[in-house]
Each structure stands twice: as structure tokens, then as C-alpha cells.
Design a protein around this nucleic acid. Structure first.
Lengths: 333, 333
DNA sequence: ACTTTAAATTTTAACGGTTGAATTCTAACA
DNA sequence: TGTTAGAATTCAACCGTTAAAATTTAAAGT
């Protein structure tokens, strides 16, 4: 691959001049600029962004860490961030944390060591203290779906507590009072907040939270079947099932039908996240919309504004979930 | 961030020695190694991988280009690649092509300019000629789901033609003969091959391909509803619908039910890919399994073997799709 | 004690760019 | 025509690391 040196020789100008036309900022006469451009074209020159990054200490790329690369939730999130950044000519470096402390730290180290101009994290296993410490480093850090104390300006988050409340409230309003709750992994802040909202809604309706109608799932389809199986086998009475995400809700729906239940007549089910697939379950899933794609865009805008100094970026740090009413929850008769 | 220089000073050894202990290969006495390790720990030193990459001309990271970051298909693919590579201590840099020629090229340039040790591409818009040319460069290139002439050793692909054949055959064997075909975008090789397989199966059963029961969808849920709508409005008779992927099949199922059809009685539907959600549609989707996660693993193994010289990697370049029988296709009565 | 040889360590020059300071041009002005 | 300000260009140091070659150190052999 041709280097800047060869270009400079062919165009008979200095390295510095070539560098200037690459970075199109400083003053170069049109005549020389054209000479250089021609030379670059002739050699098929492409700047080595590693060298650029080392020399200039910036990389025009932002690091992203997500828990998983698959899954509707993270897909939407990454897509949102990438779309916004790409439109601004920035690139994205993605790595994963798998919700494990070591891997999350490793991924973060990697992104930092790659000279990312900023990093956007969706971390779940690492402690707040670690993150606060991390922010003292020279790489700016932003957070998705996590509120870190004192770092609110760097967070884009969803009011999960409200979402949990909304879900439960909507079920309650349909007359259900025996409600099973299928939670997500409780080490994840999102899950915990959703559960808190659920409890608050219960309390607001003078209903006690029932320990025996609680199951901690894994946020995956299997969590849905496992959870519902557990509830069913416990022989308790319940007319509604609240799932902390749509994947589990899907699993539960499938399992319910396998067990001969007729939905939503025998059991109302509500999900959370409103993933694309939610409208393709049967019955169509009533759920809580989680505007994660939008939040991804917003996180990207935040770094565009703060790091790349783009103007006219209006930032919303906190997003509100909304109820999406479909067919999986019905009025208790 | 501490540099190697500060470490060397604190440990009172030369830069080269520090570099040696970082790369734990060459000979360093245990005594000095420990001194250096201590110094590194004291300073919280972390190698700057950009500088490493520039100096050593390798980066321990491989680039991945996919069309989209969201979507069950790409999610599984990325996850497979990443898991395998991560286990080997390599990192992954992901970018997108959005199935557009310019963006695909731009993404490829980016990955190359980041000194990736190899790149794994899932490209759809770019020409074979371009790819052949690309392979002449110094960055090794591997392909997912695309057979490039003369570069078979660098490709990991699925026999989509066979998949298309299998889908149609299975429907045919259930007694259907009036079959609508909902294709994917025909500029994508995958879609084209699946269609070819479909036609071959038809021919094998002495059935003519019917132009009016053909619709080119977009591989998304909306493609499913649009396609089925088109077929329904054409007032033609058909008892089965073959969809070129599961997303469209889901869309079709949902739309069919909205139109009052009873599935699978009134219409048999088969998908392609066997995405996770395929088992959560109602009726559960009969489909063709596309082992894309496995293929991701395999692509990663291929670079592990070729680029990082790992032993004991047995490589399969071509994967075969298989029929997954569930409930969405029934025998025509 | 004196080579010889191998191991450990240091020196030094890349890698491919960026950038502030220094220098050379160019053209306008007195 | 000689100055001179300002624009255009070049110089040279630097970014943080690797690695080939050179040097020093240590161990072994006679």
C-alpha cells in the first residue's frame, strides 16, 4: 500500500503538505492540492488510519461494548448508534462483554487501547466504582441503559422502573389480581428496576407482592418456558403473567400453548421491549415499548456533540417507555 | 496513560526488554521479567495497541463487515465469529455495508486501514471483480455466504440452492401443487440461489414455475405481508407459500391471520433460516435450517488456521441446509 | 586464567503519519 | 525597487511500540 512518502515524492511536495491535503483543513494552494490529489489517485493511496491515530491521538472511531452481538435488543441499539455515527463520517468498533465482569473489563481495555475517541458502553457486570474510575481516564465514556452516580450527563437511559410500573398497571386495570412475575437476571440494573416498578404498581393497588409467583429468568426464550413451567407446576392460581422482556414472553407463549392453554383467554401475558418480533407472536404481544434504537441514536448524538463538537444536537438523556396494547392481555372476566 | 518508556525507566531496563516481556516470547531472565512486571503493575501500564499495530504490522484483530447490525441472521453470524475469535484472544472490529456498494467499499477500506490481520466479509452489493482485486491486497479476505470464483478456499458458504430445493420439495411432498413463492431481493446471491433451487424442485416434479405466483420481497417482515397481500389480491389459488426467509414468513403468518385465514389449514407456510423466533410463531414455523452461527465459527476457525497458524483446525467450507419440520406446513387434504 | 559460545540486554532505526515552528514565496504597498 | 505582511511550504520532532543488529554478560570448556 502506498504511503504518504511516495505520494509526496510523486507530487514533489513535502510530507507535511500531503498530510495537509489529507486533512483538508489548513491552507494549501489549489495548484498543489490538485497535484497531490492526482498523485494520490495515481498510487491508489489510502491513509493508514492506525498511523493517523497514533500520530494525532484521535481515531474518528468510537468504541461500543454490548453484552451480546445477537438478540433483537442489542441489534437495535448497535444499529441506532452506528447509523447516526456513520452519517457523520465516523466509524464504530464493536466488542462484547457477555455480562461477565472480566470480559467487560477486557473489552473496555481493548477499546481504549485502540484509541477510540469515545466509548459507549452497555455494561452489566462491572461495578459503579469501576466505571467512575474509568471516567477519570482520558477516553470519554458514555453509558447506555445505566445510570451511574454523578455521571448523569454521560448516560442515556430508559426509565425502567416506570416501564415495570406501566406493565403491571395495565394488567391490573384489566382486572387481573393474581399475577405472576417473570423477572430478568437481578444482577442487571434494568431487570431490577422493572421489578421495582412492578412492586410499586402492586402497592398502589393495595396488592401484596407474592414471592411464590416470582421467578428469575434469563431474559431468553428458555427463561420464558422455564418460568411458566415453574408457575404452572406450583399449582397456584394466576390469570396474568408479566415478563421482564419479550424474548421470555415469547417463550412463555409457546410453552403455554404446548400445555394446552388457550391464549389470551386462559392467561394474559405482557412483555417488555417491543422487539420487532413482538407483533408476530400469537396472540400479538402487548408490551412496553423500549425505544432502544432511538436511544442508540441519542448516545451517538451525545458523542457527536461533546467529542466531535457538532452543533445543533439536542440531547435527551432520559427516555420513557410506553405501553403498546396488542392482543395478549385481555380483561379478566 | 503510562508508556513503555516510563516502565523501562522505572524498571531500569531498556525499551526492548519491556517490549519482550509484553510479548512474552523471547528470552528474558526471570529476575528482569519480574522487575518489569512490577513496574508495569505499579504504573498501571497497558500497551497501546495502536502503536503495537503500527510497529508490528499486525493487530490481533479481525475485521467483520455485515450488511446490518440488527436482524437475527447477522446477529447469529457475528456472535459465532466473535465467540471463536475471542476464545483465541483475538478481537473483532465490526462495521456495516447496508447492502450498498459504496458503503460496502467504504467499510472494507476502513477495516483495511485499521490494520486488521484479516477481514471476513458478508457483502452483497459489490462485484466479484472487485473482490478478486481486493484479494490481491496484503490484507487476507474471507467470505461468508458468498462464493467468489477462484477463491473457494476463502469462502464459507451455505448451499442455498439446495435449501431452496428442500423447502419446495417438502411442500410438494405434502401434496401441494399451487405454490406461491415469496423471494428475497434478487441482487443478493442467497436469494437468487434459493429461487433457483425452488425452480429445480418444481421441475423435478413436472410443475411449471408460475410467474404470477412470484413476488420479490425485501427479506423483512413487511415483505411478508406485502407479498401475501399481493398474492391474495391476485385472486389466484394457492395452498402453500414458500418464503425465502423467516422474517418474511413471520410477516406473512401475521398478515394471513389478520385476513381471517386459519393456519395452517387454509395456507401452509414455510420459511428459511430457522432464526430463533421461528419456533415462536403460531403455528410453529416449518423452515430450512441455516447454520449461520456455526458458519461464523467456521469462518473464524479459518482465519485462526490460516492467519494465526493455529493447529488442529478442521475446516468445512460448505454447509448444508436441512429441513426443520414444525407445524406450519400440513398435508393438503 | 583465557577462549569460546550462548544468553540477556541495549541500541537504533523503523512503522506511517501529524503538527508547531521555521522558512521560503508571493504579491501588495510605499 | 526595496520592504514586508501573509500565505504556502518545509523541517523536524514526535506518537508508542517492535525488531534486527550490536553489545554486554554469564556460563562452560580446556
Amino acid at each position: 500500500m502506498a504511503t504518504i512518502y511516495e505520494v509526496s515524492k510523486l507530487a514533489s511536495v513535502s510530507l507535511a503538505t500531503v498530510s495537509r491535503v489529507i486533512n483538508k483543513n489548513s491552507r494549501v494552494s489549489d495548484k498543489t492540492r490538485q497535484k497531490v490529489l492526482d498523485a494520490m489517485a495515481e498510487l491508489g493511496y489510502r491513509p493508514n488510519s492506525i498511523a493517523q491515530s497514533l500520530a494525532s491521538n484521535r481515531s474518528n472511531s468510537v468504541g461500543i461494548l454490548v453484552s451480546e452481538l445477537h438478540g433483537a435488543f442489542f441489534g437495535q441499539m448497535m444499529a441506532g448508534i452506528e447509523a447516526e455515527l456513520r452519517a457523520a463520517g465516523k466509524h464504530v468498533i464493536i466488542t462484547t462483554g457477555h455480562s461477565e465482569e472480566d470480559k467487560e473489563k477486557d473489552g473496555i481495555e481493548f477499546l481504549i487501547s485502540r484509541n477510540c475517541d469515545a466509548i459507549i458502553l452497555h455494561v452489566e457486570a462491572v461495578s459503579d466504582a469501576y466505571l467512575i474510575d474509568l471516567c477519570k481516564g482520558k477516553t470519554p465514556v458514555y453509558f447506555m441503559s445505566r445510570l451511574v452516580e454523578g455521571l448523569n450527563g454521560n448516560c442515556i437511559s430508559l426509565d425502567n422502573e416506570l416501564g415495570g410500573y406501566l406493565a403491571t398497571q395495565s394488567v391490573l386495570e384489566q382486572g387481573h389480581s393474581a399475577i405472576a412475575y417473570l423477572a430478568g437476571p437481578q444482577f442487571k440494573a434494568d431487570s431490577k428496576d422493572r421489578l421495582t416498578g412492578h412492586k410499586r404498581a402492586l402497592a398502589d393497588h393495595n396488592l401484596a407482592f407474592n414471592d411464590t409467583l416470582y421467578f428469575e429468568g434469563d431474559f431468553k426464550e428458555t427463561g420464558g418456558s422455564d418460568g411458566l413451567k415453574y408457575f404452572l407446576e406450583s399449582k397456584q392460581n394466576f390469570s396474568a403473567l408479566i415478563c421482564a422482556n419479550d424474548e421470555m414472553a415469547s417463550g412463555a407463549i409457546t410453552y403455554a400453548r404446548e400445555q394446552g392453554l388457550s391464549l389470551p383467554k386462559d392467561l394474559s401475558i405482557i412483555g417488555f421491549d417491543n422487539i420487532i418480533f413482538a407483533r408476530h407472536t400469537y396472540p400479538k404481544l402487548t408490551t412496553i415499548d423500549n425505544p432502544v434504537n432511538l436511544m442508540g441514536h441519542m448516545a451517538a448524538k451525545l458523542v457527536l456533540k461533546n467529542i466531535y463538537k457538532q452543533k445543533n444536537m439536542s440531547i435527551t438523556h432520559s427516555f420513557e417507555p410506553t405501553l403498546i396494547t396488542r392482543d395478549s392481555v385481555i380483561c379478566k372476566t
